[in-house]
Simulated scan of single mutants.
Amino acid sequence: MSAKRKAADERPATIEMATAADGAERVVLSGDWRNRGIGAVVSDVTRLEKSHGDGRLVVDASGIGLVDTSGAWLIRRMILRQQAAGRDVELTGATETLSELIDALPQHEPKGPPEPQDDRSLFQKIFEPPGKVIASFADDAVAGMHILGSAVAGAQVKLGRGSGVSAASVVTHIDRMGVRAVPIIVLMSFLIGAIIAQQGAFQLRYFGAELFVVDLVGILQLREIGVLLTAIMIAGRSGSAITAEIGSMKMREEIDALTVIGLNPVGVLVFPRLVALTIALPLLTIIANFAALYGAAIVAWAYSGITFETFVSRLHEAVDYSSVAAGMIKAPFMALAIGIVSAVEGMKVGGSAESLGQHVTSSVVKSIFVVILMDALFAIFYSAIDF
């Protein structure tokens, strides 16, 4: 028999109210009380449950055909609620199958979970959330130091002992994090340099000082924007990948397997990535600086008529080695911060895909926050030492 014929043969569930011969209230149930057919009578049953009458209630189930657990529970719930209201309920005409189903169901309607009660004081409600955030930052800092120490110790980089660092692993991660990131870094930096030059020239034109756009782009790009935006791009691109890779290994218990065979998982997995990031980010920063200056030179020539020779000559006058060093010094520290934060979040991943997604997102957000914070601290430090 086809599915269409089976659906056509099914009788819709119905419920009718009547009066018994002895004056008792009578409820007549008929049709097929199965999961896909009882939707039509749910509202009628609910209305009957709420309208608690007086006297005896007779539930006539002789007209019921097919029935499953859903239909039986709907009947059982109606009887329980009427009995809870103090009525005498009698079930008549039920088949053996229906009687067995109803008897197998709970004798009392299960109660839902109690509503949570918040007994905290107003002071706790206000200061507990920021306190938890600060405590989580402290825990992350301790975990980061643990990751860094375990990575170095696990790699066995010690005087008089062979290096435990896999050169192939480091080169592979440099290729993934550095070489494959060159196109997007070049494009982004080229556009940023061009935008800064265009906006700077537009504003400086009012003062007849369009040539100083070279100073603006050179100092801003080399000291701040180059390394900062490159680090942010790497945090979003490579930091998320580190968290996803380590998190996936943790979900599949591969990290536990490394521990069982006597290897330090942090040293094996994290240290090569930290080394690769520390090498790749400064190199990407250099590439980003050249791309941004090239974009600025093109816009300055097209928008303000500043030739390439004039641009380079003015750049030599405006920028010294301290400007280049100020940006490049930040790069290794930012790379370590991105790698450590990403590894910490990867180690936190639980056994679900939802946990992996949450920690990957948290990794990117925290990495970008740490990078910007480090850039601000370096700026304050440079100002303090007049660098």
Rank of each mutant, 00 (worst) to 15 (best):
I184F: 04
V268F: 09
N289T: 12
T285H: 09
Q198A: 15
M177N: 05
G93M: 08
E309S: 15
E90M: 02
H359I: 08
K348A: 05
T307D: 07
K158N: 07
A61W: 05
I340E: 00
G144T: 00
G327L: 03
R11Y: 13
I196F: 06
A155Y: 10
G218W: 12
D375W: 09
S355K: 03
D320Y: 03
L263T: 15
G71F: 13
A331N: 11
L204E: 12
G262V: 04
S304W: 08
P282C: 15
L57D: 03
A292M: 01
V67N: 05
A72H: 02
V152L: 15
L91Y: 06
A335C: 08
P272S: 02
T95Y: 01
P130A: 04
G267A: 00
G71Q: 06
A7Y: 05
T92A: 10
G305V: 09
H52C: 00
I279G: 08
R81Y: 02
A326K: 02
S323N: 06
R161E: 14
K348D: 01
L281Q: 02
A13Q: 10
G86S: 01
L204V: 12
K132T: 08
M145G: 10
P332L: 14
L373Y: 10
F127D: 04
D119W: 09
L293W: 05
A384K: 07
A379V: 13
M1L: 02
P106M: 13
S150E: 11
V157I: 14
S43F: 03
V371P: 00
K132D: 10
R77Y: 06
I196P: 10
P332I: 14
A181N: 07
G149I: 14
M251C: 12
G178M: 12
A194F: 05
R120S: 15
I287Y: 12
I126N: 04
V299H: 00
L283R: 11
G37L: 15
T95R: 11
I102G: 01
I385D: 03
A257G: 05
T69F: 11
F127K: 07
S189L: 03
G55T: 01
S363R: 01
G239A: 07
G112W: 06
S313N: 09
A24Q: 05
M249N: 09
A141M: 08
L229Y: 02
I174H: 10
V275G: 12
A280S: 15
E253Y: 11
A325P: 01
A325L: 11
A331M: 13
P282H: 14
W73L: 13
S323I: 02
A181S: 13
I380H: 00
L274R: 14
L105E: 03
V213D: 02
T259P: 06
S121Y: 09
A61C: 09
K4Q: 08
V341Y: 02
H108Y: 09
S163Y: 13
F308G: 12
F333E: 14
Q124A: 12
I147A: 07
E309T: 15
S323W: 01
T19F: 06
G154W: 15
G93C: 05
L159T: 15
A353C: 03
D320L: 04
L258G: 01
G160Y: 07
G239R: 08
A143F: 10
L315A: 08
I286K: 14
I287F: 13
Y294T: 11
I232D: 00
